[in-house]
């Protein structure tokens, strides 16, 4: 049974030196819903996603992960309940796809990692038997592998930053199916995008002005 976790953020602001990226941003991602973050280039969508994951600290404001049953999660616990796909996050280029997934499965303490990794690679359209290092993959194949990595531990919170970038039409159709499936299974999704098709998947919206 997947945990029901919602992510709430209130009056978030981020400043790098004197440059204000955004301020006064609030919203929440509920289980079974898709929060879409939109905004022009440079408006801070990826910065907001990094902040919500715990990779960056906000200059002002608060972020809370609330478990439906057990109350608020500590910051150290966020890691175990979230999965992320983002352009700024790289995979190990000198390892092949199975080695990458096996590594992330092991450090996350995932059981039955071998069969799960094979299954996930098959689901995203990659060949588990392929021994090519990831450095030799196309950008679309990279993106598929990143999505598989994010789904490894079946996280109750899923952050997707421009998930459809570099995917071919078949990949984009698969992505839509995956988002809908995750919604139905009660995952709280946060989607940063400017793609009109992806924006339509949203049940809540946060627009950054830039």
């Amino acid at each position: 049974m997947k945990r029901s976790i919602r992510v709430e953020f209130d009056e978030l602001a981020k400043r790098f030196d004197l440059r204000v990226i955004f301020r006064g941003v609030s919203g929440r991602a509920e289980p079974g819903e898709v929060l879409v973050i939109t905004g022009p280039n440079g408006s801070g969508k990826s910065t907001l996603v990094a902040m919500l994951c715990g990779l960056l600290r906000p200059t002002r404001g608060s972020i809370r992960y609330v478990d439906g049953d057990d109350g608020e999660l500590s910051r150290d616990e966020w890691r175990s309940v979230l999965g992320v796909v983002a352009p700024s996050m790289g995979l190990y280029e000198e390892l092949d796809a199975m080695e990458n997934l096996r590594f992330f499965a092991k450090v996350r303490g995932v059981h039955d990692a071998e069969s799960l990794c094979r299954d996930l690679l098959g689901r995203v359209g990659l060949d588990p038997g392929r021994k090519t290092p990831v450095g030799g993959y196309s950008t679309g194949m990279h993106q598929r592998l990143k999505i598989a990595q994010a789904l490894l531990h079946d996280p109750p919170v899923l952050f997707l930053d421009e998930p459809g970038s570099n995917l071919d039409p078949t990949g984009q159709d698969w992505l839509e199916g995956m988002v809908l499936e995750q919604r139905e299974r009660g995952t709280a999704l946060v989607l940063a995008t400017n793609d009109r098709r992806e924006m339509e998947w949203g049940t809540r919206h946060v627009a950054l002005s830039g």
Partner: peptide, 16 residues
């Protein structure tokens, strides 16, 4: 350098 650190931070315990 290879931008793998953010994903490692989100996946593994720091002491690990």
């Amino acid at each position: 350098d290879t931008h793998t650190a953010p994903l490692l931070r989100l996946s593994a315990d720091p002491l690990v």
